Amino acid sequence: MRVLAVDWSGDARGGRHRIRVAEARPGRLLGVRGGLDREGVGDLLLALRNGPGPAVVGLDFSFGLAGWFAREHGCASLPQVWDLAAADGERWLAECPPPFWGRAGTRKPADDPARPLFRATEHDARARGLHPLPTFQIGGAGAVGTGSVRGMALLAAWRSAGLGVWPLDPAPGSSGVLLVEVYPRAMTGPVVKSSPRARGAHVAADRRIPADLRETAAATEDAFDAAFAALGMAEHVDELAGLRALTDATALLEGAMWLPPRGS
């Protein structure tokens, strides 16, 4: 099974200058590439369908929104959330209506147990000591909302074209492609990613990264995240190859991150 990871971008210009795609096998980084915008990533994913074997691709954007928000907007399933994002997402990003925040003049909503900002999968990640940000945050340091909204808007079309999307779909078997939501920070380990020197030292110390790829993998935070997400996924390729579709009602409405097993 091929293992790839995409460090995504919600940039209004398509993300070409930010998006990075990495590929790895167990114990070795195979490559990191740039130059693709979101449309180009879609073309790459669709091309993987024609490969000689199956592929799993990690994407670092939220595949869904909090369940209460989905239900308030008439959604009873994850594909309906994607359709909603395709229809209304650009308005959300332009107007930043509550519960979205992060644009100038907006504030984070007050805590409300009935309207949590985090999805269940993000609560699970936080219980493991990770710190994902809410998808409703569409501006500010580390915000993932813009990229997630623009990513969700594409998932329905990709799935209609034959790509599997976990947790709705299982691993592809002998052929096909499965997309999974990943959180690169779960696989980078502790490092100050904003520091080029720290990234370089972290890469240099990892024997899975060949010498000729070290500069590329450490060049930007985006390349760094893509490289380590691919490496982390590759370490668990057998688990990924055996993924089953989930039946949990919350996951089927909100989506779910794939995280490495505890202690790995």
Rank of each mutant, 00 (worst) to 15 (best):
H73Y: 07
F61Y: 13
L59G: 11
L78M: 08
G89H: 11
W82T: 07
G89V: 11
D88A: 13
R49H: 03
G64I: 10
W82M: 03
V57K: 05
A76W: 08
A70W: 04
W82I: 03
G74C: 05
L78Q: 00
A87W: 10
D83S: 13
F63L: 11
W82K: 03
L78R: 01
V56H: 12
G64F: 05
H73P: 06
V57Q: 05
G67K: 13
S77H: 06
R71W: 02
L46E: 13
L78C: 04
L48F: 13
G51M: 08
A66S: 14
P54N: 14
P52T: 15
L84T: 11
G58H: 10
R71V: 14
V81Y: 04
G58R: 04
G64N: 02
A87K: 11
L46W: 05
L45V: 12
R71D: 04
S77A: 12
A86E: 15
P79I: 02
S62H: 14
G74A: 02
V57D: 09
V56I: 12
P54S: 15
G53Y: 09
D60I: 15
S62F: 03
P52Y: 09
D60L: 07
F69A: 04
G67T: 09
W68I: 01
H73I: 08
S62Y: 07
D60W: 04
A85M: 10
G53A: 12
D83T: 15
L46G: 05
L84D: 08
P54Y: 11
Q80K: 08
R49E: 12
F63Y: 12
H73D: 07
A86D: 13
W82N: 00
Q80I: 03
L48G: 04
R71S: 07
A87T: 15
Q80C: 03
A76E: 15
D88Y: 13
L46A: 01
A76S: 15
Q80G: 12
H73W: 09
N50R: 14
L65C: 01
W68E: 04
L84V: 04
S62V: 00
A66Q: 05
D60S: 13
G89S: 07
V57P: 03
V57E: 11
A76K: 13
L59K: 02
P54C: 07
V81E: 00
L46T: 13
P52M: 12
G51Q: 14
L46K: 06
F61D: 05
G51H: 12
V56N: 06
F63T: 09
P79R: 02
H73F: 09
G74H: 01
L45N: 05
S77C: 06
W82F: 01
H73A: 06
L59A: 10
P79M: 01
G89F: 10
L65W: 00
P52F: 12
G58N: 12
G51V: 10
E72F: 02
A55R: 09
L48D: 02
C75D: 02
F61N: 00
L48T: 04
R49T: 13
A70G: 10
L59E: 00
L45T: 04
E72G: 00
L84K: 09
A66W: 09
D83N: 13
G51R: 15
E72I: 04
